[in-house]
């Protein structure tokens, strides 16, 4: 495997007697999509929370491009190039589409507190934001309120907000959740197009999407990685079939 951009080593987290994350190791190589799948309650969202810094692990290490980020706050991780989308759609509904992305540009450039007055560089920021919207095919809706977007378009907007930070690694927590078949197809094409631009850790329930998109799949069950490999290897793995995939695959 190529050099891991995002590396998780021996991560453990317990709530009382419940081991939600029980010694997880993951390596996401630059420019690849690494999917984490697993049944409900396998600990996927807790894992994402720890990688992003919202939840503190009991032990273990998270490294971004070789740097230990385990103890850093979420916004510091974001500044180091770790972007995130949320399981529940998280855009600011009362802001325009462009403003949502401009906010992300502002956050990623770390100049939030220097611009008390309307900045002269407004045009530059909005230019970056617009470029982000073009990448996800949403430039035509820049002036609309985010609340006017369809569910799938909100997902696209979230991606644009993650992308304008030029992240080195992205965590996508169920980016297809709630999307209809057509929207899902568009989002899958979009996500596939991001391959090569950064390391992507994808948590997703939609198995079609996972097997189409992922270069590597890790299967999480009861807080442990029970299998990890190429989509073909995972599809053929008897342990995975028994534990999770059932007869559909």
């Amino acid at each position: 495997m190529a050099e891991a951009l995002l590396e998780i080593v021996g991560l453990r987290k317990s709530y009382g007697a419940l081991r939600v994350t029980d010694g997880v190791d993951l390596r996401v190589a630059a420019g690849t999509i690494h999917a984490v799948i697993g049944p409900n309650g396998a600990g996927k969202t807790t894992l994402i929370g720890q990688i992003f810094g919202a939840i503190r692990p009991d032990s273990g290490q998270i490294r971004l491009a070789g740097r230990d980020i385990t103890g850093l706050s979420p916004h510091r991780r974001a500044r180091l190039g770790l972007a995130r989308s949320f399981q529940i759609t998280s855009v600011l509904p009362e802001f325009s589409v462009l403003e949502n992305v401009a906010l992300a540009v502002q956050g990623s450039h770390g100049s939030a507190f220097r611009f008390v007055w309307p900045a002269r560089s407004e045009a530059k920021w909005n230019g970056l934001a617009l470029a982000g919207l073009e990448r996800v095919g949403l430039a035509g809706r820049a002036g609309d309120l985010a609340s006017a977007l369809s569910h799938g378009e909100k997902r696209q907007l979230e991606l644009a907000m993650a992308l304008v930070a030029e992240p080195r690694a992205m965590l996508l927590d169920e980016p297809l959740a709630g999307a209809g078949p057509e929207e899902a197809a568009r989002l899958i094409a979009l996500l596939g197009g991001l391959r090569g631009s950064c390391a992507i850790l994808l948590v997703e329930h939609d198995m079609d999407a996972v097997f189409q998109l992922a270069d590597t799949i890790s299967v999480l069950a009861q807080g442990r990685v029970i299998a990890s490999g190429t989509p073909d290897a995972i599809r053929a793995d008897p342990v995975v079939r028994a534990a999770y995939l059932g007869e559909d695959f």
Binding site: F52, P74, H75, R84, S90, V91, L92, F95, Q106
Partner: peptide, 19 residues
Amino acid sequence: MLIRAGASNQEMVGALGVD
């Protein structure tokens, strides 16, 4: 804008790199 965004969705604004 950050204050309004923070009032609306603090976690997301933090994820964008805002302290």
